[in-house]
Computed example of a mutant assay.
Amino acid sequence: MGPKAKYSGFYGYIVRNANKQNIYIVNKTFSKKLKVTIPSAPPYWIKNKTNLSNKLLLSTKDILNSNYVENKTFDNKKIKGVKIFGSFINGDKSKAHIKLKISNNSRLLYKTGPRTKGQQIKIYSNGKEIFNGNLVSQTNWGVIVFDISQKYTNLTIEMIDNSSKWGEWSSVGLEEKK
């Protein structure tokens, strides 16, 4: 590394399928190396909602189990053709969950409070948990796009509000199907 590059602020990038592999960071000056295990990347990506259409793929028919309540999100604004369910039942203190049937490339409209330490997302294949992580804070509506390996089948997700602290809640928007 040259003198100009030493403090360049360079960041490295790791490809998504490198989950749980080891990389080594080497310091040539001191002949030391640091072993780092790459954490699991979530099997989904998030895009900000810019132009919402009803083609969310996930609908009210995909609900398997829920105690989220209709129209219980922080601002309770309606979206045409979309039913909104949330954990903001009695304010931040409420805890709730929703379980949905999904497939690869399914999209889910979601929103959270400003804090998400107690907001979980779990993904299951044939009833076995394959991912467990915290929801990314999304105070405006965003879309989760699921990108799950084809080897997994019979997919479900569970969103869990497991906190009664200020700013902790989550909501989903599902295409309204009768």
Rank of each mutant, 00 (worst) to 15 (best):
118 G>W: 00
108 L>N: 09
37 T>F: 14
74 F>E: 07
7 Y>H: 06
148 I>R: 01
165 K>N: 15
13 Y>P: 15
172 V>T: 02
19 N>M: 08
39 P>Q: 15
39 P>S: 15
123 I>F: 03
20 K>Q: 13
22 N>F: 07
6 K>A: 07
124 Y>G: 00
3 P>N: 09
5 A>Q: 11
156 T>C: 09
105 N>A: 12
2 G>W: 03
92 D>R: 15
134 N>Q: 09
173 G>T: 01
108 L>R: 05
15 V>E: 07
129 E>D: 01
82 V>Y: 00
177 K>V: 03
57 L>M: 09
48 N>Y: 14
132 N>R: 10
134 N>C: 04
83 K>S: 14
47 K>V: 12
154 N>R: 08
109 L>E: 05
6 K>P: 15
141 W>F: 08
44 Y>A: 01
125 S>K: 04
151 K>E: 04
110 Y>M: 08
56 L>T: 02
156 T>A: 09
178 K>N: 13
86 G>W: 03
11 Y>C: 12
143 V>L: 05
63 I>G: 02
37 T>P: 01
13 Y>N: 10
113 G>E: 03
155 L>R: 06
164 S>W: 12
65 N>C: 07
176 E>L: 00
118 G>Y: 00
83 K>H: 13
26 V>Y: 11
6 K>E: 04
1 M>T: 10
89 I>F: 12
46 I>H: 03
174 L>G: 01
69 V>H: 09
101 K>H: 09
98 I>M: 08
70 E>R: 11
67 N>Y: 13
176 E>Q: 01
163 S>H: 03
8 S>D: 04
148 I>M: 05
20 K>L: 12
31 S>N: 14
88 F>R: 10
160 I>F: 08
156 T>L: 07
104 N>C: 10
63 I>K: 00
42 P>N: 06
88 F>D: 14
19 N>T: 07
19 N>Q: 11
73 T>A: 04
65 N>R: 10
95 K>Y: 09
112 T>H: 02
52 L>G: 00
120 Q>F: 13
91 G>E: 02
46 I>Y: 03
95 K>L: 11
119 Q>N: 06
148 I>Y: 03
99 K>W: 06
7 Y>D: 13
5 A>L: 13
50 T>R: 06
71 N>D: 14
77 K>S: 04
114 P>Y: 13
155 L>D: 05
88 F>H: 14
57 L>F: 11
95 K>R: 08
48 N>W: 12
21 Q>C: 12
98 I>W: 00
145 V>Q: 11
24 Y>L: 11
143 V>S: 10
148 I>Q: 00
176 E>F: 00
167 G>M: 01
91 G>K: 11
81 G>C: 05
171 S>P: 14
101 K>V: 09
10 F>V: 10
160 I>H: 09
35 K>R: 15
56 L>D: 01
138 Q>T: 07
9 G>I: 02
139 T>D: 03
43 P>H: 14
3 P>K: 12
38 I>D: 06
52 L>T: 00
138 Q>W: 05
170 S>I: 06
43 P>D: 09
167 G>E: 05
109 L>Y: 04
123 I>W: 05
79 I>T: 10
104 N>D: 12
113 G>V: 04
